[in-house]
């Protein structure tokens, strides 16, 4: 679908407020730029009643895709290109508009189908995530999928499961550290510094590493 970049930006904003903050609607006055609102209404992305702006299913789907592209771009910049936080944000804003659907899937797969963005917000899942196509070439992957003898640098840890996170933090398993996979069955064993640590698959799934 062809909508302007400004309209795409606005869809992102709507997604954050309406979906992630679970507000359901947003006051039209908060949106400002009326031209863009008009464009979104015309392309049937939003509906407007009593000054309340809501998503149409189409608009919701569209903004979900944009958010996904934005956050994938962030991940790519953060995990692989190791771009600093400030730069990452502005670069991601440009990236999101030029990533096509096919490219999006390749990036997602390379990054091991990430579940959160670098800020910890949820990553909308794509078709590729659900199918989890196994491809050999990837750069980032969850620790549970690494093979014995592979090395990786931890790029991030899923922070949703608080207890698992605390355990990993406690043992000093943190982003930036290099791990070597010693064994993956029956438990995942990896070496970090001079210590070997064993975890179950649940916890190993929460650790994302860049393969080196």
């Amino acid at each position: 679908m062809n909508i302007s970049e400004a309209a795409q930006e606005m869809l992102e904003k709507l997604w954050l407020e309406i979906v992630e903050d679970k507000k359901g609607f947003i006051d039209v006055k908060k949106l400002g730029n009326t031209n863009v609102v008009k464009e979104l209404a015309k392309t049937r992305c939003i509906t407007k009643s009593d000054n309340r702006v809501r998503f149409t299913p189409k608009g919701r789907n569209e903004s979900r895709k944009i958010i996904r592209r934005h956050r994938l771009a962030e991940r790519l910049l953060h995990d692989v290109l190791e771009v600093g936080e400030d730069e990452m944000e502005s670069a991601a804003c440009k990236f999101e508009h030029i990533i096509s659907e096919g490219v999006e899937e390749s990036i997602c797969t390379l990054l091991g189908h990430p579940k959160i963005c670098p800020h910890g917000k949820p990553m909308p899942q794509g078709k590729c995530c659900r199918e989890r196509k196994k491809i050999t070439e990837r750069i980032v992957s969850s620790l549970s999928e690494l093979k014995k003898g592979q090395y990786g640098k931890i790029v991030y840890i899923l922070t949703k499961n608080h207890k698992n996170l605390q355990k990993l933090l406690g043992m000093g398993v943190l982003p930036g550290m290099t791990v070597e996979i010693i064994q993956r069955y029956p438990s995942h064993v990896f070496q970090i510094g001079q210590t070997q640590i064993a975890v179950d698959t649940d916890i190993a799934n929460d650790i994302y590493v860049r393969i080196i």
Partner: peptide, 9 residues
């Protein structure tokens, strides 16, 4: 909750 396992060797 399901038990979870983590251990330093």
């Amino acid at each position: 909750d399901k038990p979870s396992f983590y251990m330093e060797l």
